[in-house]
Simulated scan of single mutants.
Amino acid sequence: MSHATTERTGTRRLKVLLPPLGVAAVTCSAFVVAAVVDPNEPGHYPTCPFLWVTGLYCPGCGTLRTMHALAHLDPVAALGLNPLLVVMLPILLFWWGRWVVRAWRGRSMSTAVPHPAWLWAFIVVVMVYWVVRNLPFGAFLAP
């Protein structure tokens, strides 16, 4: 293989890796900010608009504090703040890793939409989580 061909292949691989690496850079930056700027201290971050308007927790309430706890290696506290996020993180990391591997091998990510049953199941899980964390018996899910 000639030097020019190797160089083109390397450039092509870098181009296809840019999107997943960009997502990783943005995510890591947000993670670092949440790790350094304590969301448990008032005044650092705005209040959740849904919580502010309704007084109820949305599915994302507690996410910043969860990320802060994970950054400080406290998974028990993170699980207590937003268990749905903690459960979803390994799944998200798997899909991101799959994206990187496929990009590195020169294969595009499948753009096929998952079976509708999976999408509906996910929506139902999020909606049930949203409702239950606002009920008295689901207080353990509240941040």
Rank of each mutant, 00 (worst) to 15 (best):
M1E: 02
M1K: 02
S2W: 09
H3E: 13
A4D: 12
A4L: 14
T6F: 14
R8E: 13
T9Q: 14
T11V: 01
R13P: 03
R13E: 03
L18Q: 04
P19N: 06
A25R: 13
A25N: 11
V26H: 09
T27L: 15
C28P: 00
V32G: 07
A34D: 03
A35V: 10
V37A: 11
P39V: 11
P42K: 05
G43T: 03
P46E: 12
T47S: 01
P49N: 01
F50D: 00
F50E: 00
V53N: 00
G55Q: 11
L56R: 10
G60Q: 03
G60M: 06
G60K: 04
G62A: 06
T66W: 08
M67G: 03
D74P: 08
V76S: 06
V76E: 12
A77R: 13
A78R: 06
L79W: 11
L81D: 02
L81Q: 04
N82H: 03
P83W: 09
V86K: 09
V86W: 10
V87W: 11
L89I: 15
P90W: 13
F94K: 07
F94T: 09
W96A: 00
W96F: 08
G97I: 10
V100R: 06
W104M: 10
R105L: 15
G106E: 08
S110G: 04
P114H: 11
P116I: 15
P116M: 13
A117D: 02
V124Y: 01
V126E: 02
V126K: 02
R133V: 11
R133P: 06
R133C: 04
L135K: 05
L135R: 05
P136L: 07
F140Q: 10
